[in-house]
Nucleic acid binder design. Structure first.
Length: 205
DNA sequence: CGGAAGATCCACT
DNA sequence: GTGGATCTTCCGA
């Protein structure tokens, strides 16, 4: 078990590509019904803000949905997609920067049984099945839009120091599912832990 | 006010 | 590898 000490506000008040890399190995903790669920982050993606065509804040959009993405480092931005799934983001930078990190995958450290229930899996999960993919990650921790905008520094959903990883363990590549974003689609803003079986889809090198 | 697309997942072939 | 589910959000008219 790595460190359960909360990450401080300063950690998040940086450009989202730096935060995305540094979130690898950290713990995402969910307090649920008196139980603690712990997930070690193994895959993230940075969304830079208004100049990033793949970001929801592209062009400085300020719609109802993305309001929390402007709240400044340390908040959650949770949105629904395809009518079926939720995605959890860690807001970065200063207030108004509109930058965030999408949490794409994690490995269970504590509470795997409960996560399996929340995922409604009848069998023991195969590689990546429990929390590999942004929608699965949210389902495994019972994260939905009610948590949009909450602080990640303390409380029912928070991030802790966990197990920081060395550069040699980090691989990066282009982000998933942003083909519409022109040149930004190729920016290497996806980060993953080398060799993790939970990492979703094409494994970056 | 209507149409279209989406930072996805699952089942099936 | 492909297609369907399913609905919110957003933009243009």
């Amino acid at each position: 078990m790595g460190s359960l000490r909360a990450l401080q506000r300063q950690f998040f008040r940086r450009p989202s590509d730096q935060v995305a890399r540094d979130l690898l190995g950290r713990y995402l903790i969910r307090e649920l019904g008196g139980r603690r669920l712990v997930l070690r982050l193994v895959e993230t993606e940075a969304y830079l803000g208004p100049d990033d065509r793949a970001a929801h804040t592209w062009g400085g959009r300020r719609t109802e949905r993305v309001r929390s993405m402007y709240l400044g480092g340390g908040r959650a931005y949770v949105y629904a997609i395809y009518g079926l799934h939720c995605c959890l983001n860690v807001v970065c930078g200063e207030e108004g920067s509109g930058s965030a990190v999408l949490l794409r995958a994690g490995e269970a450290v504590e509470g795997a049984e409960r996560m399996r229930e929340l995922r409604a899996l009848a069998r023991p999960p195969r590689a990546g099945e429990l929390a590999g993919g942004p929608g699965r990650l949210c389902q495994a921790l019972a994260v939905d839009r009610r948590l949009d905008g909450v602080s990640l520094l303390a409380g029912e959903l928070r991030l802790t120091a966990g197990e920081p990883v060395a550069d040699g363990e980090v691989v990066r590549g282009a982000r998933i599912g942003v083909h519409y974003a022109g040149a930004a689609a190729d920016w290497p803003l996806r980060f993953a832990l080398r060799g993790s079986v939970e990492v979703s889809r094409p494994r970056p090198r």
